[in-house]
Write a protein that binds this DNA or RNA. Structure first.
Length: 379
RNA sequence: GUGGAUAUAGCGCAAUUGGUCAGAGCGCCAGAUUGUGGUUCUGGAGGUUGAGGGUUCGAGUCCCUCUAUCCACC
């Protein structure tokens, strides 16, 4: 089983380590997103140690559709398949219930989708999601939940959250059964529950209490950063995180910008993931300590500086803004690759700085200074 | 040198017999993206229609001259 050890706190900010059968994760941590068992932008698992990756994230739904979880199981599980010996977290496919809206039917048993690849009908419920994730043999499996739009009616959210709770009970039961089977690859697979409730304080808190009683391996806050304001998201975190167990990791799903992460760490969050560093990198946006820059802008055409002076990433140690801009304009894969390596290095390095700051009791001042830099426009 | 063809936005092209016809695409410029959108989405800036003259109420469209390019033939 996993062991979560709180090493230090500053206010509600937590510095901890999470020991799993696949290795120890130092938190707060940013999980590098590799939906289809690959970090988009031609980044290999061989590159990850050089950019400080501790844990990789993949997706149940996408891997079920292609290549198929049975195939991944035959290949020894996702970690062996990818040649990545550190922890992996798999998202449950629950978010696809939300993000593929229009192609779905939600019922008590589960959800019927149309595959975005070939249109075939797929059914996924709590048991299916757990079986797929067991086949993938990730370190951490996420509960199968529904992520309702934050603007949804109270009655819709209440019904949805109640169903998500029932689904969580089924997930826990099925995970226990799968972990007891002889031919399960990772018989110590962990299960994180997911808190929902939109921006409704009472629903969020009541749900947090219910899932805390289930004694899971970790807890996620889901359904945020889906259209509400940053202030609302921070308010929900202020209200709900205190109701999640202090001796378990807390994961804020899908978030976010560097500023979002700093604010959430301050509110007690341990785990993060977001497509921003990878997607924005592919689209030419690079994160720096002096604001985000768009390398596609004409002003970088003959800029011979690295993306960021002093950055230790493979792109900045070797190439200029002008060269990377050229690669991006020309559609060369190398351009995306260098951008993604830089952005992930930036995120991972920021998380290291955050951990060091909490260790040294200076997170508050670190956060203030960092935010001022991030909002600068000096590039 | 002779004959023929072409000339519209940065590029290759559209504009029924002269009558809202000066346009779309690509490119360019900029913005978006939060449990993934690699080929996505949204905006924007560019043209005295090669130059000059003529016919007409009206010319990218017809006529003349010039210029440039291309193709044949000497």
């Amino acid at each position: 089983m996993a062991k979560y050890t709180l090493l230090k706190t500053e206010g509600r900010a937590k510095r901890a380590q999470f020991e799993t059968v696949h290795g120890t994760v130092q938190t707060p941590v940013f999980m590098n997103v590799g939906t289809c068992a690959a970090i988009k932008g031609a980044v290999s698992t061989l590159d990850l140690s050089g950019i400080g990756t501790q844990i990789e994230l993949s997706n149940t739904y996408h891997l079920h559709v292609r290549p198929g979880d049975e195939i991944v199981k035959k290949m020894g599980g996702i970690r062996k398949f990818m040649n990545w010996d550190k922890p992996v977290l798999t998202d449950s496919g629950g978010f696809q219930v939300f993000s593929l809206a229009g192609l779905r039917k939600i019922k008590e048993e589960g959800v019927t989708f149309h595959s975005h690849v070939d249109g075939r009908v797929i059914f996924m419920g709590p048991e299916e999601s757990m079986r797929i994730q067991s086949n993938l043999a990730s370190t951490i499996a996420m509960a199968f939940d529904e992520c309702p739009p934050s603007l949804a009616e109270r009655s819709y959210i209440e019904n949805s959250v109640a169903r998500t709770t029932r689904w969580l009970e089924r997930c826990k039961k099925e995970m226990a059964r799968l972990n007891s089977l002889e031919d399960t690859i990772n018989r110590q697979q962990l299960l994180f529950g997911i808190n929902q409730g939109g921006t409704l304080t009472d629903v969020r808190i009541e749900h947090a209490k219910r899932i805390t009683e289930m004694e899971l391996d970790g807890y996620a806050v889901g359904g945020l950063a889906v259209g509400e304001t940053h202030e609302e998201m921070y308010r929900v975190l202020d209200e709900v995180v205190p109701y999640l167990p202090a001796d378990k990791p807390v994961y804020l799903m899908g978030v976010g910008t560097p500023a979002n992460i700093l604010e959430a760490v301050e509110r007690g969050v341990d785990f993060f993931d977001c497509v921003y560093p990878t997607r924005n990198g592919r689209h030419g946006h690079a994160y720096t300590n002096h604001g985000k820059i768009n390398l596609l802008n004409a002003k970088y055409e003959t800029d011979d500086r690295p993306i960021e002076e002093g950055c230790g990433c493979p792109a900045c140690r070797n190439h200029s803004r002008a060269y990377i801009r050229h690669l991006l304009k020309a559609g060369e894969m190398l351009g995306m690759r260098l951008m993604v390596l830089h952005n992930l290095y930036f995120y991972n390095t920021m998380m290291t700085e955050i951990r060091d700051a909490i260790d040294n009791g200076c997170f508050a001042s670190y956060k203030k200074t960092k935010l001022e830099g991030l909002e600068a426009k000096e590039n």
